[in-house]
Each structure stands twice: as C-alpha cells, then as structure tokens.
Design a protein around this nucleic acid. Structure first.
Lengths: 170, 170
DNA sequence: CGTAGCATGTAATGAGTTACATGATTCA
DNA sequence: TGAATCATGTAACTCATTACATGCTACG
C-alpha cells in the first residue's frame, strides 16, 4: 500500500492538485513508483476521507489543491522509518531460475543482451548525474550501484555459461 | 502476468499437483516470486483451459497431477528470452526519495539499520552457499551481489548524512 | 474560433491477499 | 480414534492497468 505514501511524500514537499502530482509521477517517480491517473485520483479521495490530506485551495476548472495534514505527516514518518515489507518479486530472478531450460546459446545471448541493456542505462544515468538534486542523491547513487552490479554480473554469468558449455562439448 | 510463467517453469522441470507446486513456492521461490494457494489453483485451471498444461495423472484424494504441454513449453521459452517488463516498483527507492523529510538523526538510524539488515541477510546467504544446486547458481550469485551493494551503499549513505549533518550544525 | 493544456473522473478487468471451507488418507 | 498431512477450492477485498468520458480556459 505504498502509492498512498508516495502521494503523502510529494504533498509533504509541496501542496498540489491531482494533475500536478501526476506530472511528478510521470517524471521523477516514473522509474521508482509508477502510477496512473485513475489510481491517483482515487487515492487522493481516500486520503482525504481518512483525514491524511485535505483540499486547501479549490481553484478554477474544478481544480482541487491538496495539502498534507498532521495525521498525514505522522503516517508518512512512520512509514519512512518502517522496515521493508515482504513480498518483493523479481522477474529477473524468476527468469534466472528457469534459464537452464533453454538452449545454452540462447541463454548466453540473453545474458549478453542484459549486460548491454544495463550498460546503456548506466550510461544514460551517468549522463544526467549532475542534474540530480541534492535530495535525490542517495536514491540516485543506489540506482547507479544496482545497475553496475547488474552489468558486471551479466557479463560474469555469460562467461560462466560459455565455459561450462565448452566443457560439455569437449 | 508472471505467476503463469513461474508455474510453467516448475512444471517444465517436473510434473506435479497444485499441492506439490505450493511447497516449491513456499521454499525455493519464496523470496523470488511468492504465491498463495488461491492464486495457484486458479492459475492452474486457467493454464489447463488455455492448453498450456494438462492433467496427466489424477490420483487419490482428488489429486490432479499436471504436466506442461508443447504449447506451454513454447510460451515459457518465449517469456524466458523476452526483455524485462516495465513497471518495476522499489519501495526502498521510494522511501529514499522522501527520507529528507525526517530528522537527520532518524534518517541515519534508518540507514544504519538497513546496513545491518543487509549484512545479516548476506551472512545467511553465504552460510547456505554450498547447498545451492548448480542450476540455481546464477540467481544466487545475483542475489549475493545485490545484497553486497545494498550493504555498502547503506554504510556510505549513512556516512554522507553524518558529514553533511556535521557541516550544517557548525 | 480552434487547439493545446488544465483538470477531473468512471468502468472493466486482471493480479494479489486474507480468510473461510471441506474432505480423504495414513499412521501412531 | 485422533492428529498430521494430503488435497482442493471459494469469497471478499485491495491494488494496478487500460480504456473511456467529459468539460473549462487561456492564448494565438
């Protein structure tokens, strides 16, 4: 139930309408916690019902500007410091569990492709490094490091498969 | 839609009943792709309707042993080699985006806790390293490397906060 | 006056969680 | 005969995705 907390986090920085928040979900949070309009507007209503946010400034064109309440801030704070919730799914790891079931050459090609993909994303990330605001620095650095291991690991894994394949056909 | 592929992957290794598969979901796949009974039995029916698996051996107590079909194998193969699907959510990264909104001392404590957590999981993983079957080796290694960066990063991040906190109060 | 951008939602469907509900067999 | 294990499911609910649907306003 973290969409709720993403919304609270954004509103804790600045009040805004659903429309405003949507732009943030489509930019800064795009790769971290994607959300759609229908989800967002629904969640805003529920948050308002629960008293965690309130409409602070109705505007033209039906605009409703929301602000976080004290209760909302308390909820956000508690969540921020709470442990990681269970149930993490990793499609990558799942594929890996069954990668032994395709031809070794296919598996190698797949891993090579993964390495290239990670390298590309890494390059993109490094290119925008200086644009990252100070407050986003920690998250950025973690993303960077994750991509680096991803790339190194894929290269290592491909090498390993190549070796064992060679051994087998000898 | 990856529960489907997890089931196909398991059945491609060995035929089994919903009950059998559930044990695997609760052990080997627990940390990779958790699933519940109700999800699993539902998915098995749908897979059978779609012709990707079939009941190969009905047994006592209502047991239905499923096997993968050629169509199922084809589907699995295609999925294994397909690119990563979009929509990856990271609760960790989301927390990080908003960690600036709590007291620096709270944030540091949180990061220290994360580092310890990663170190503990790492130790557990390393302890069972030799029990990992050859076919699970790639996934295991990726998990290991991810935990290592997690730990190193959390330590680095905490140090960074400590520094900037010190600068601010000077 | 038209179009780009602002601004809000609903409906249908699929995926995941939790709780409930039942019955057969084996073995001590 | 009673408990553990085998074995299957349904129902209610929440969360996420996709498509549909509408209307106002500023500006050129």
């Amino acid at each position: 139930m973290s969409l709720r907390h993403a919304v609270l986090g954004l509103l804790a920085r600045d009040p805004g309408s659903g429309y405003d928040l949507m732009k943030l979900f489509d930019t800064s949070l795009r790769t971290v916690w994607p959300a759609t309009r229908s989800q967002l507007y629904g969640e805003l209503s529920r948050l308002a019902d629960a008293g965690l946010v309130h409409v602070s400034a109705p505007g033209g064109r039906g605009r409703k500007e929301y602000s976080i309440t004290d209760a909302g801030r308390a909820e956000l704070h508690a969540w921020l410091l709470s442990g990681p919730s269970r149930g993490a799914r990793s499609e990558m790891l799942l594929r890996l569990c069954f990668l032994g079931q395709v031809e070794p050459s296919d598996a190698r090609a797949y891993l090579r492709h993964q390495a290239e993909l990670a390298a590309k994303e890494l390059a993109e990330l490094e290119a925008v490094e200086r644009l990252v605001p100070e407050r986003g620095r920690l998250a950025f650095e973690l993303g960077l490091r994750h991509l680096r291991v991803q790339q190194e690991w894929a290269a290592w894994a491909e090498g390993r498969l190549a070796e064992s394949g060679a051994t087998m056909t000898e």
